[in-house]
Write a protein that binds this DNA or RNA. Sequence first.
DNA 1: TGTACATCAGTGAACGCGCGTTCACTGATGTAC
DNA 2: TGTACATCAGTGAACGCGCGTTCACTGATGTAC
Lengths: 232, 232
Amino acid sequence: MTAIRTARERAREELTREIKQEARRQLASEGAQRLSLRSVARELGMASSAIYRYFPSRDELLTALIVDAYTDLADTADAALAAAPAAPRARWRALCTAVRDWTHAHPHEYALVYGTPVPGYRAPQETVGPAARLPLALIAVAGEGRADAGAPPPPPAPAGPLGEQLSRLRAELAPGLPEAVLARAAIAWTQLFGMIGFELFGHLVGSFDPADAFFAHAVEEMADLVGLPAEG
Amino acid sequence: MTAIRTARERAREELTREIKQEARRQLASEGAQRLSLRSVARELGMASSAIYRYFPSRDELLTALIVDAYTDLADTADAALAAAPAAPRARWRALCTAVRDWTHAHPHEYALVYGTPVPGYRAPQETVGPAARLPLALIAVAGEGRADAGAPPPPPAPAGPLGEQLSRLRAELAPGLPEAVLARAAIAWTQLFGMIGFELFGHLVGSFDPADAFFAHAVEEMADLVGLPAEG
DNA sequence: TGTACATCAGTGAACGCGCGTTCACTGATGTAC
DNA sequence: TGTACATCAGTGAACGCGCGTTCACTGATGTAC
């Protein structure tokens, strides 16, 4: 069924891909807020109005790029996990490293999704699912570490409003994970992107630049925090 | 000597202040990349060309705003420390909380200095000093914790390139601090801004929103990591 | 204290640029009979 | 297989907008004598 496509359909799919590809190229050279439909059209050799046959507005194009970026990052992370050894700490390391490598390869797509929101743009619902894949992968690896033999006893679960948020999230995402460990996985999640953001946005210049060793060290500290057993 | 100012000098200082104030207002309503000299001038009721008597270009105005933002944040942090009790953990908490509160009160100034860099703008040397004040304050409080009685024994110092970066930083900034603790303070620094960035840019919606309790919890975990003694 | 000149703030018009979006249109592709 | 009509991609001009920066200028403020 999907095999039967008219020439029109094929042309449409191809041009949609080319528009996004050119938009990504401009993201990389100019940044997200400088992305303009007119210059995408110019570069593709078509009238600026033609873009509107494919994306009804600039915001819709941005949304498509955002969904693609989240998806590409999560796919890359999944692939790294699939290729990683079985030990939870090794998998944690592989996951964090894959995330950092992806952001280095796609700094402007990183900025698009994790940087300052584009003024006037509000992320629609369809970005939520793709955005959640990466934190879910981090939590999953933390969970594998718990299932493992050498895991330390879990710390007491936080009380109060945080306890309520944690128990809701736990029920949805990670029934096997103690709440305190879920909290630490979430902390590690913010830590991971905090470090990457600082690195890419120049805040480590003059202190930890290059940041490879600092990053590797922090990844191990976070693995400790989450309670992943040491190797060997 | 500074008391003798001509009317011209006083007018110039006042208008310089007013321009920056209006620019900050626009930062807050439009974001950094939408900040325009023309609309600042318009709002102030003057010709757009008049701004050039005060700031030779848009980039110079941005630089002034950046320096002001770093300085205001660091001043706020210093004031919070001055008002905090003596116990290192309480001071750590006061410092982290003051930083978060400031970013909530000034989200667009936060985005200006810690968000995606404005495309085409390169931060000049004069921003470096003000930018460094906050990490220095975090390291200082970590150092106070070490001097305290109940501090745990320091972990072994990292080797390799990270060890070299750490020993250079240690010599410059914190001679009394073990290198592994300095590394953890740096990790906590990136963690602090990672969490704040996620909160302000909407990545905690659907999980830790409101983020107050999550933040408070993470601050304690970071205090543990840095080795600040528990209270009581 | 008064005058002549130098300095400087602020004006308004202009340059050249790019943007998102709309609209009536042409011509090619697809579909029903 | 051929024809008549419907659908759709792409065009090019236009609307209305805002931007950073330059320039020759006017008029007020400051300074030296």
